[in-house]
């Protein structure tokens, strides 16, 4: 129950911060993708199925800000979660470098959806967008993931009920 609440809270917080705070910390127009970080953390922590569901949920919440293209970010989220879940089995998931690279890669995966959907970009312009903003945003996401992901995964792993019961101490 607590894990489900945490999952919902993490999805909500990622979308909320992405929509309201992240553009204040942009560098040269490049902003980090908090959803990619959260999806990567969830997939590495809990596996493909939960990562996919989490990605779809976060994508749906992000879709609500862009009702005209609703469903597109849901697809991008579940694709990112699914991909992260598959890669989880092939990378050393406890290594920070792997986590960071995965978060940056997920940001690159999600970008075409956002560019073609809510941003209303044309497919032919995507390479230019990728060079101008996409790669920078992915790098920024990876840098921020190095700080956020370990904390996020620890928060997910924590068991407040055990701490409250005094477990582990004698």
């Amino acid at each position: 129950m607590i894990r489900a609440a945490k999952t919902l809270l993490a999805a909500w917080l990622a979308v909320f911060l992405q929509s309201s705070v992240v553009h204040f910390i942009g560098i040269g127009g490049n902003v980090p993708d908090l959803l990619a970080i959260a999806i990567a953390a969830k997939s590495i922590r809990d596996g493909t199925a939960r990562g996919t569901a989490f990605g779809a949920l976060a994508g749906f919440l992000a879709d609500c800000y862009h009702p005209a293209t609703m469903g597109l970010l849901t697809m991008s989220g579940l694709a990112a979660g699914w991909l992260a879940g598959i890669l989880r089995e092939r990378v050393y998931r406890e290594q920070l470098a792997s986590q960071v690279a995965l978060a940056g890669g997920l940001a690159l995966v999600r970008q075409p959806f956002e560019f073609l959907g809510p941003a209303g970009g044309a497919l032919g312009d995507y390479p230019w967008f990728l060079l101008r903003w996409g790669l920078g945003s992915a790098l920024y996401t990876a840098a921020l993931a190095a700080i956020l992901m370990p904390r996020l995964m620890d928060w997910w792993a924590a068991r407040p009920s055990a701490r409250l019961a005094g477990g582990g101490r004698d």
Partner: peptide, 15 residues
């Protein structure tokens, strides 16, 4: 995981 993926894909398609 495949079931979840299918369900999410369906939900996305419905949206």
């Amino acid at each position: 995981d495949v079931a979840v993926l299918a369900a999410c894909l369906t939900a996305g398609a419905v949206l």
